[in-house]
Simulated scan of single mutants.
Amino acid sequence: MTRGTGTLRAEKVTVVADGRALVADVSLEAAPGQVVGLVGPNGAGKSTLLRTFYRALRPTSGRVLLDGDDIWRMPGRHLARRLAAVLQDTTGDFELTAYDVVAMGRTPHKRAFQGDAATDRAIITEALAELEAAHLADAPFDRLSGGEKQRVLIARALAQQAGTLVLDEPTNHLDLRHQLDALQLVRRIGATAVIALHDLNLAAAYCDRLCVLDCGRLVATGTPAQVLTPALLADVYRVQAEVGAHPRTGIHQITVLPERDGPRRKGRR
């Protein structure tokens, strides 16, 4: 299930709420086929920034471009054909089967009230199979476990067949193997992707570049090896850590060194 790719770019995006800047003057770019990880502590602004990418939140200033086009100037259906999102903690009270939820991903490609064609059904079935969720097709979505719901929602994004993916903590609720499977799938399909992740080792293993947010500001960007340094982890996360290439995989790896009475970050928002 491969697809064409796009370039997603934020230009000086700022989001202000109640007089407070949740995101401040952030610029970043995900090039075609590139997986960009968005990392940072809780409250750093990751989810807020991602909401501006799929038009759930309009920036106070700045803009978001997809292949050079301002997303707020696009018809909604046109944007949905080009960009798909998996949200964090999506409510699971759909009175639909898992198959029906995945089928929602085909909506941007159909006319109003148009049923599923054979092509749509094949895409839906393939998306479920990619997430090892084919056996859940007839199950009521609201009765699935958290991990099963998450796999179905990722399958819905795949069924949308957009060239760009925005994923907010897509590994939430997934067990270890399915976390790896989901991130491997994003890389395999070749879409442009921006992914918010808490697990820095997963981010280092599957992302081409990382963008670090802290208190709403972009404080570092580059490859995992360039960004995830002991100094940055101490400054942004307030932890002591050892970093280096894994002896077998060569992948950048972080080992956090627990402290009984570690320093507390002052001024965290």
Rank of each mutant, 00 (worst) to 15 (best):
L28N: 06
T60V: 12
P140E: 08
A155M: 00
F113H: 01
A139I: 02
D116F: 07
L165E: 10
T249N: 12
R111D: 01
G267S: 04
S47Q: 01
T91C: 11
L174W: 07
D199W: 09
D208A: 02
R20V: 14
P41T: 09
L22Q: 13
A245E: 14
T255W: 04
V39P: 09
F53P: 02
R63F: 14
D142K: 12
R55E: 01
A205P: 00
T119A: 14
T192N: 01
Q114V: 12
G43Q: 06
C215Q: 15
F53L: 12
G92Y: 12
R58I: 02
V23P: 10
S61E: 13
L202T: 14
A117S: 12
L218E: 03
A159W: 00
T7C: 03
R82H: 15
G115R: 15
G222E: 09
G62V: 13
R156N: 03
A205F: 00
T14P: 00
L144K: 06
L158W: 03
A205H: 00
D175Q: 07
P32C: 06
I71Q: 01
L180Q: 11
V186Q: 00
S47R: 02
I254T: 10
L22C: 11
R55P: 08
G250P: 11
R58K: 11
G244I: 03
A193M: 11
A157K: 01
E95S: 15
R248G: 03
H109T: 00
A112P: 05
T107K: 05
L136Q: 07
F141S: 00
L202K: 11
D168M: 09
G222I: 10
A31H: 04
L197R: 01
L22I: 07
L232W: 11
V23D: 09
E132D: 15
L65C: 05
R265T: 08
R265K: 09
H198Q: 12
A56M: 13
A85H: 14
Q179E: 12
G262Q: 07
R188D: 13
E126L: 11
R269A: 12
F94A: 14
F141T: 01
A162C: 13
R77I: 09
R111N: 02
G40T: 07
D208H: 14
